[in-house]
Design a protein around this nucleic acid. Structure first.
Lengths: 210, 210
DNA sequence: GACTTATTCATACACTTGTTTTAAACACTT
DNA sequence: AAGTGTTTAAAACAAGTGTATGAATAAGTC
């Protein structure tokens, strides 16, 4: 980490270690040690450990969420323009595709997406609050659009199916490369295309189930 | 916590706090404070904080896993005896039903099931290792039985669909009562019957998707 | 009763955490 | 050359952590 700025060194190392071991199990001394910078540099550049985490989320999630939101609205607008019902698979793709494509765009973003997947299920408030602040509007939009695409579903049924969907997606996002329970002889590929083509049929069928 | 033994007081309070705030964000002082026992009691009765967690898992998961395993094998045996293909919904029910029924059997078990749901996604090794030691055999059995029920699926496809299933189930198990993202006006009921009847159609359709 | 064992208690220990402070260098612009 | 923002160094801070100790008390047994 010699060429990049100190600030960027910290960001890169932090998001990697946060994703690998979680926010709370990653001390500032580990981050600054691996980044090769001084311990005080974090508080100088970011103010606090929490602010460092917020900066990481801000950096990746603002542009990514804009894309996901635009994609979702594009699906809805197109359906209204053509006066055709929305396809659940299109809605899911609008949400999932940018996420996993972004994940595959570099080794750094891969760590970040794993971090996002973890944040949803964090037991501690610090991480979850930051995460929810960024994702709540998008979650509501997804719910509204799915409600429009599946008007025959009871609100409660849609709610639980969306919860299942969120659980499945976040679980896939968490898998950074270390398979926890892999049956013998199976070495599943993890590239974005594979995951997208596996996720969407599963979730579409689940959401559209009778 | 006056009538119960000190050991049981610690167990009850610990599994509640572990489920609410996570293993690492729950200090022994918080546990013993809320349980109304002395700090040293944990190390006296269990040896260490880690051993306390192991005792909690042992206490609940050994009997619960035996039931789930018996149910799974019963579905397979019945299919072989009648020479009929297995129904995916029956397999899922054999796994999910005991879990959520156990969850609803008391306020204590509800906390424990939430704790199990968290453990799968814990960033720290301590918790995940203990969890996996108990669940790995059951996971393999579930995979083998699903492979038998869905012989036309590519092994990789089955693997990813099982991952989605695990993600969805664990996410539902994590919800103890505080809904993170609840759309306005929706107050979904969380009793075992509702959850079972919501989960199984969703997951069956996903696993059987074309 | 006395004696032994099991349990509870207050306290101290060693350690890690995030954060702050001091000082001294370095890089850069005007 | 002066000044400004950055970086490093070393040290200390208060707070919190799991664990260990030894004395005090309770429970059980002969």
């Amino acid at each position: 980490m010699a060429e990049k700025s100190t600030r960027q060194c910290i960001l890169d190392t932090a998001e990697k270690l946060f994703a690998l071991h979680g926010y709370h199990h990653t001390s500032l001394r580990k981050i600054t040690g691996e980044a090769g910078v001084n311990l005080a540099a974090v508080n100088y550049h970011f103010g606090s450990k929490k602010a460092l985490l917020e900066a990481i989320f801000e950096y990746h999630l603002v542009p990514l969420n804009r894309i996901r939101q635009e994609n979702l609205k594009a699906v809805r607008d197109r359906s209204r323009r053509l006066n055709q019902p929305m396809e659940v698979a299109d809605i899911l793709r609008a949400f999932i595709e940018p996420t996993l494509r972004y994940r595959d765009s570099s080794s750094k973003t891969r760590y970040f997406i794993a971090l996002v997947g973890q944040s949803m299920t964090e037991t501690d408030d610090t991480v979850r609050r930051i995460f929810l602040r960024h994702l709540r509007p998008l979650g509501f939009l997804l719910y509204e659009i799915l409600k429009e695409a599946l008007p025959h579903l009871e609100p409660e049924t849609l709610y639980w199916r969306l919860q299942c969907t969120v659980g499945a997606i976040s679980h896939i996002m968490r898998l950074t490369g270390d398979m926890h329970i892999t049956p013998e002889g199976i070495h599943p590929s993890q590239d974005a295309e594979t995951l997208i083509e596996q996720l969407i049929p599963f979730l579409t069928a689940g959401l559209e189930a009778p």
